[in-house]
Simulated assay, not measured.
Amino acid sequence: MTEKAARRGRDSKQGANAVGRPRVKLSDLDPNWKTIMHLLYQEGGTDIEVRVALAIPPSMAMSHDLWYDLIEREPEFSQAVKEGNLLAEAWWMRKGREGLISYEGVKFNNTLWIVNMRHRFKFTGADRVTDHKQGEEAKEPVQFYLPENGRQKKVS
């Protein structure tokens, strides 16, 4: 019995709720739910935006409990959410890469981009140097020198 089922006082192996309204199934969603989901994620959308787009009328948004219940119960839905999160992360990575090149009249807020990446995708911004033997972090960073106008510049 799952923790959620235990809180509700039901066995999770029951096919349907013993009392109350029936469980929401994928067939209850819009027939194009996966397309809607992926289109939003392809533009960097969040789970919240997808939950609003997939709302079942008269609701204005899919509830938190329903969202995670569908992820837990429906492998197709779970896989679509995972794919969607990858699409969103790819969109944000592309925006960051485009932001490296400044276009005339366009400003890129790198601080906002970094904060967004850290909070949404656990982005660190740099790969850690590791010891190949143990997988431990190297004790000292590698240092090298670059020539700059005839002088040596230390870079670490």
Rank of each mutant, 00 (worst) to 15 (best):
E136D: 11
L146W: 03
A88T: 05
I71R: 03
N32I: 00
V24Q: 05
N17H: 13
K153F: 02
G44L: 07
A18K: 04
T2S: 15
Q79T: 09
L26Y: 00
V19I: 11
Q134C: 06
F123T: 03
Q143P: 00
K95H: 06
M1N: 13
E3C: 05
N149T: 08
E89W: 05
W67C: 03
L86A: 09
R51N: 08
Y103P: 01
L87W: 01
S12H: 13
E148T: 09
W91K: 13
L66P: 02
S27M: 03
I71F: 03
A88Q: 06
A55F: 02
V129L: 11
K154H: 11
M93I: 13
R120G: 02
T130G: 01
A90P: 00
M60E: 15
E148K: 14
K34C: 05
W92Y: 12
W67G: 01
T130M: 12
D11Y: 10
Y145G: 04
S27Q: 12
G125E: 11
L112P: 00
V52C: 10
K153H: 05
I114D: 15
A5P: 00
D30I: 00
Q152L: 14
M60L: 14
E83F: 04
K82N: 06
A6E: 13
D65I: 09
N85T: 09
E43A: 14
M60Q: 15
A53R: 13
T2Y: 10
P75M: 04
H119A: 14
Q79E: 13
F144W: 15
V115A: 14
G150R: 07
H38P: 00
S12K: 10
K133S: 12
Q143G: 09
E140C: 08
R128K: 14
E43K: 15
S102I: 07
E137N: 08
E49T: 02
H64F: 07
L66N: 04
M1P: 05
H64R: 07
R51F: 03
A88P: 01
P31M: 09
L54F: 08
V19M: 06
L54K: 04
V52G: 04
N116M: 14
P147M: 11
R7N: 06
S12V: 11
R8W: 05
S78T: 00
E137W: 09
M117H: 04
R8G: 01
A88N: 07
A55S: 14
S12E: 15
W92Q: 07
D47V: 12
N85H: 14
G125Y: 11
A61I: 01
D127L: 08
G105N: 08
